[in-house]
Nucleic acid binder design. Structure first.
Lengths: 340, 340
DNA sequence: TTAATTTGTTTAAACGTTTAAACAAATTGG
DNA sequence: CCAATTTGTTTAAACGTTTAAACAAATTAA
């Protein structure tokens, strides 16, 4: 097929100026423009199958109707579900989403953010990685609107949407204690990411409040990035091999819970008889693992829509900072029954 | 912070023409250009924190270094894993990916493809929906390079990367028969999508070859798009309530297997004692379901890299059509033991 | 009847790049 | 020493839009 048709082609065909064609197709000055000419322009545009060149438009208007999404890993169901919600929400504003996975690396984050800015996105939604403070800080000094999601930096004055990790975990662990568990292990992450640190803090606080003294052998921390073959497996093994093995395990995210559960499947451990399970995040695992798992459910849908909403407020109103902490909810399944 | 810096700003600062700045920063004519001037340009670019305006560049060069990815649903782990692979692969070519979910609707497919083309993407990777023939056919007549993935249209002369659905399923069902199962149910889809029809055909062919006469009560077909609340659950219920219940179920995709397994969990059916399970696609469920599931594994990584490779061949060489059928592999787990 | 206004359309510049072509100055060749 | 070449740089047009401003013709007002 032939060349792409431009306003010029239509203009020539109809015998008018490019400007007029532009006005008609953008419905501007409709009270001024001759109805018949307008109609003719419209029909030839249709006939020639005209599609506006978004790039040219963007160059002039400085709006690309594109937004950049930086997540840790789009293959992680947590982020892909979020991505889907963001996609749908963005579509309502006629926006398209370009995405990238940082793999929890600050270097990759920076690279992605730069690339997206080079592409002149109108805004960014970012799940920042561990050492992204400086990147985000530079971004803040820029006129580029953005919202952090899932993770944030406590005393940085930027928009974000996160959940109440501390309280949610606190409640979760508290639930375990109330059910009668007394040796509660946790598999978390070796990281400075606040959302994950809050989960750790919530765990410890709940133990304390429940009158259980924290035993450092109960807390296992793995790498956030590069999974580390067998790290989770070893952690579980260790927790179960203690002189007094744990009677419950709290998985701090879907990532560890998924690998963890796979491993537990290979052991002859009876859930929840021998071991109770509580996990942060919902996933297929939550329902498929043979006893329905008790878990802490993040309001994904709300997170996504809020993030987009805040971003667009930021895009139009500029520099309005909104920080939202949503409530994660404890869903009690069958993996944490009352201890007999 | 201030305005974005452009080539013009650098040019003015250094006291040279915009052209020269462009040449230097793009490393063109390096043998001609005065080393010191070049250096000065580079350092001021650095100092001003110059970032090229990709949009302006694209307008001139007609390349956006962006590609569009259309999947059924980015939240489906099958597609998000694929997306991740495509992302990584595209990055090697310095490409960014914009994505959209069609929800198996032709109308949405068309819309997404149009949007992506308006954004002047350099190419498209598309998992087409059920009635996308005409859209793809129009696309074919265009100069836009594209590759279909996962699904294709048998006698359309376009590039694609798919798997051998028929044979893979045939082998899978054959395995069940060899293990001694004689009443094998299938939960598939009510659809015209070839990849799924091939799975059905493979199922039937294997039954026939195995000397089992196909019983139409064994085959349940659900909607591909709009899941239909309880459809899968009812199907399973029916299969197990037959006068002679099935002794094995083949799930035709991760989508049905995930919901199916969740439901089976709520029943008092013993897997694999009462019921063997075979599923197409790998997912967390495959390993987490308490007996490791036998399944048919699609070579996701190969699919993604091949698709990108073919797309880029198409982008540079133009109109070279490549059709790749990759081999899906039967992974024998513990859900399909020999019948005693 | 002429000035002011309205109507319908065009001109021209701009957005930030790329790139072919032009050009002046310096260098080389014969 | 002059012509030809090389070196280093600039001019100008272009990509496909948008948009302020200009404009000519028709209409209205006084």
């Amino acid at each position: 097929m032939k060349k792409k048709v431009s306003l010029k082609d239509i203009a020539e065909r109809v015998g008018v100026s490019i400007t007029l064609v532009s006005y008609v197709l953008n419905n501007r000055f409709k009270d001024r423009i001759n109805k018949e000419v307008a109609q003719k322009i419209r029909t030839t545009a249709e006939k020639l199958n005209y599609r506006p060149n978004h790039i040219a438009k963007s160059l002039k208007t400085n709006k690309t109707f594109t937004l950049g999404l930086v997540v840790a890993d789009i293959a992680n169901p947590f982020f892909s579900s979020l991505a889907r919600i963001i996609e749908d929400e963005a579509e309502k504003y006629n926006y398209t989403v370009i995405f990238g996975s940082s793999d929890e690396s600050a270097e990759r984050s920076r690279k992605l953010i730069n690339i997206f800015m080079d592409h002149q996105v109108d805004g960014l939604i970012i799940a920042p990685a561990e050492n992204d403070e400086s990147i985000i800080e530079t971004l803040r000094k820029t006129k580029m609107p953005f919202v952090l999601i899932d993770r944030y930096f406590p005393d940085m004055d930027v928009s974000y949407v996160v959940v109440n990790n501390f309280e949610a975990t606190f409640h979760g662990i508290n639930h375990l204690i109330e059910q009668g568990y007394t040796r509660i292990g946790m598999i978390g992450f070796k990281t400075r990411l606040v959302n994950l640190k809050e989960r750790k803090a919530g765990y410890k606080a709940a133990l304390k409040k429940g009158g259980l003294t924290f035993n450092k052998n109960w807390l296992k921390e793995v790498q956030v990035d590069d999974p580390g073959i067998g790290e989770v497996e070893n952690a579980i093994h260790d927790l179960l091999s203690l002189p007094e093995p744990v009677d419950a395990i709290f998985f701090a995210s879907n990532k560890v819970s998924t690998t963890g559960l796979k491993y537990i499947n290979t052991l002859s451990v009876n859930i929840p008889g021998d071991l109770a399970i509580l996990t942060f995040d919902e996933s297929d695992a939550t329902e498929i693992f043979y006893s329905r798992l008790s878990h802490i459910r993040q309001p994904l849908s709300e997170m996504g829509t809020e993030a987009v909403k805040i971003l667009f407020e930021n895009i139009s109103n500029t520099k309005k900072i909104t920080q939202r902490v949503l409530q994660a909810e404890l869903v009690i399944g069958k993996s944490t029954p009352v201890v007999k």
